[in-house]
Amino acid sequence: MTLRISAVVERWPVNGHFTIARGAKKFVDLLVVVVSDGTRIGYGEGTAIYYSGETAEKCLGQVERVIDELEAHSVSMAREILQSLLPSGAARNALDCALWDLEAKQTGRALWELVGMRLPPLPLETAFTISLGTPDAMLADARSAAKNGYSLLKLKLNGDADRDRVAAVRAGARDARIIVDANESWGAVDIAAEAEALKHLGVAMIEQPLPAGQDAALANISSPLPIFADESCHAAQDVPRLVGLYQGVNIKLDKAGGLTEALALRQAAQSAKMQVMVGCMLSTSLAIQPAFLVAQSADWVDLDGPVLLANDRPGGFSFANGCLSPA
Rank of each mutant, 00 (worst) to 15 (best):
R177N: 11
Q237N: 09
Y51W: 15
A320K: 14
A167V: 10
A161M: 13
S232Q: 11
R40Q: 13
R313C: 07
A72W: 12
N220S: 15
A110L: 12
M77P: 03
L111E: 06
A193W: 09
L259A: 04
P226Q: 09
M205T: 13
I251M: 04
L82M: 04
G38I: 06
A140M: 10
V180Q: 06
A110D: 15
L155C: 05
A298E: 06
D230V: 01
L265F: 09
A140K: 11
L114P: 05
P326Q: 08
V33H: 01
L265E: 07
T107N: 11
Y43I: 15
G248Q: 04
A193T: 12
G258W: 00
A90S: 14
L82K: 02
A269W: 10
I227Q: 10
C233R: 06
R241D: 13
W186P: 01
A72L: 15
S232G: 11
V249S: 03
A98H: 03
V203E: 08
E10L: 10
C59R: 03
A98P: 03
F319D: 01
A327M: 11
L259K: 04
E113I: 07
K147H: 10
A142D: 02
I20W: 04
I178P: 07
L152A: 09
N15E: 09
K58H: 07
A167I: 06
R109L: 14
A98N: 03
V28L: 01
I221C: 12
G159L: 09
L225N: 13
L95G: 01
A188P: 05
L111Q: 09
R143C: 09
D160S: 11
G149E: 09
V169T: 03
L86S: 06
A193Q: 14
I251H: 03
Q296K: 12
P121F: 04
D29V: 00
G187K: 05
D160P: 05
T284R: 11
L293Y: 11
A262S: 14
L282A: 00
